[in-house]
Design a binder for these strands. Structure first.
Lengths: 343, 343
DNA sequence: CTGGATGTCCAAAGCGCTTTGAGGCTGGGA
DNA sequence: TCCCAGCCTCAAAGCGCTTTGGACATCCAG
């Protein structure tokens, strides 16, 4: 059933039927009603391809996800983010176009998506310190929003980020207040902007208290359970092992906890752990009370908010860039306690 | 840059340029070369919307994901599956259209997607025992493939599934062979086809050895860490606690392990655990050797395979239904051992 | 009775591509 | 010299929708 068939059957022109269905005022309410009833009766649904060709809008928003054989691909955080974004898209009649590409072709993928015209906007995930996608997308002239930030970017761009630096600053201060001095940082990959900022916050807090950052107590890797475990194992084997860990996510924190358990160390007593908690739906940080003390910010809520912003960028084309920064909460769990007295 | 501009600039007709770019034989190689060079030089990319209107194919494949506030939404397994499928789509020039809808509107979402014509096919996730989407999609006449099975379906349909029944049969037999008699099943939601089949395999294996299934040792819930923990806590508190658990996934298995640890029970010695391992990329079951003894089948590989099949269904429209069933491996880890002697 | 509002509806021109059916060139055989 | 393959290229008709620029009644004030 297409528009012509429907209008023929109603004895109306295509124009009138189209207007009736799209809520234009030039059509009488009785006619509109008649058209709508017929549409539902025959299960008429305008062809999206034709519609988007005519309107010039695809009603689709692109998300490009790089994958490679070595990295974790669709990472944990990502799937909660798109859950949030997807809800908002659905509410506004948009669909999400997911494009998985080998990570060496990621940049091409964006320009292809933009030039093909299959999306009205794109969401940028996981920005690095100096992310090439930002100038690229600016040049292409396609609306985009960055989840995170790219500190070295020269031109303004829309983004929403968590105040990662402040979050890790606070976490570090909190541990210092508990008397910890040998604090380990189990960070994400530091070419990522968020990881670099977290490290900056960590170091800044140490410096303020005249604690020298120790390179042996800082690691940087993908945020997996094993990378957390490995880092903890290695650091706990040192002469002067850390009495506390700050982890980039709940996943490596679980690895750290496993390393503690293996050594018979009690979390929150012998060794403290703080992590960043993205409130991942299927890896919640406890129920009534948190397992890990954590700096917390919901990535799903961020997805919702980013989607809302992106849609408004498409429809309203604001000239002032959106630069929203969320503060993470610091929630107390059972994984932290005073530094054990030195032997 | 559109086709007309490009052809004007080349002094050729739109037809010739289109044919040259799409590899038709009616155009000389020298012309083709000239056209291709110009296309890359000007960054010409055919407008996907116009192309799909003209060809009647959208080069997009739809995935509908239901969400609700109570359930886990984009679940763990799902994100690895789409990673696999997305790779294959990319290789074949397809994009993935993700549609998140409230779960009470899931069925509508499919028919809307089909009638709108924004996808050439859809992938069906998480089929229930008698899934309404299968007759619906058959009626709509849109190509589709089911990841899993729907046992009560009346008509044939394309699907790829793991032999869940056999996998849990083997796992149960393995525990019986180790002398376990009080074996608990921590299953997924049993309206899901896969969970029902797993339960059937479990019960069948017990029956064969004349072990009476105990309703108190079977639970059914969403596959979260907490649901595993809760089930284990409750069962271990019984008069005759289980000596072994079979878990639906590595996630609840982690919850079970936590419950054991809390009670000072040693996994693989006091209590055994077997789980189904979907080889989720960021929750791997150990590295050199598995943590959990498990029935294993890669969900990412399944995603790849499903995508390959679905594309061939689109392009070749086979009349024989694809019914592929994979056998899960049984891999030995450290989580299982002989049943402890009765006191 | 006429003129302009007002309210309804319509024909036709795109949107940018693919594809059909035909036409122009070239060269070799009659 | 002429003609017909064989090779290249083209004009134009869709694909199914939106949207512009009217047209045709109907109605009321002048």
């Amino acid at each position: 059933m297409n528009l012509r068939e429907l209008s023929d059957r109603l004895g109306l022109s295509q124009t009138t039927v189209s207007r009736a269905l799209n809520g234009y005022p030039e059509v009488s309410e009785t006619t509109r009603k008649r058209v709508q009833d017929a549409a539902t009766q025959f299960g008429y649904q305008p062809n999206q391809r034709a519609k988007s060709l005519a309107t010039g809008r695809s009603m689709q928003i692109g998300h490009v996800i790089p994958f490679s054989t070595q990295h974790e691909m669709v990472n944990v955080v990502f799937s909660d983010f798109i859950a949030g974004a997807g809800e908002v898209y659905a509410e506004h009649g948009y669909d999400m176009l997911l494009s998985l590409v080998p990570d060496d072709r990621e940049v091409e993928a964006y320009s292809e998506l933009a030039r093909k015209g299959s999306v009205d906007a794109v969401m940028v995930h996981g920005p690095t310190l100096d992310d090439p996608r930002i100038p690229l997308l600016s040049d292409l002239g396609i609306p985009f929003l960055v989840h995170g930030r790219s500190s070295a970017a020269q031109t303004p761009y829309h983004h929403l980020d968590v105040n990662n630096q402040r979050a890790f600053h606070r976490a570090t201060e909190f541990l210092l207040d508990l008397g910890h001095r040998r604090i380990a940082l189990v960070n994400g990959l530091e070419q990522m902007d968020f990881a670099a900022r977290r490290r900056a916050g960590f170091i800044e807090a140490l410096r303020k208290r005249d604690v020298l950052p120790d390179a042996g107590l800082m690691s940087s890797a993908e945020m997996t359970e094993f990378s957390g475990y490995d880092a903890a194992q290695q650091m706990l084997g040192r002469d002067a092992p850390p009495t506390a860990f700050i982890a980039s996510s709940i996943v490596p924190a679980m690895g750290i906890r496993r390393a503690l358990e293996e050594r018979g160390l009690v979390m929150g007593k012998d060794v403290s752990i703080i992590c960043f908690d993205d409130e991942i739906s299927y890896l919640p940080n406890g129920r009534s009370e948190p397992i890990f003390t954590a700096t917390r910010s919901s990535v799903r809520a961020a997805g919702r908010r980013c989607a809302t912003h992106l849609i408004s960028i498409i429809t309203e084309a604001p000239d002032a860039p959106i630069n929203e920064v969320w503060e993470a909460e610091l929630v107390l769990g059972n994984s932290t306690g005073p530094a054990p007295a030195a032997h």
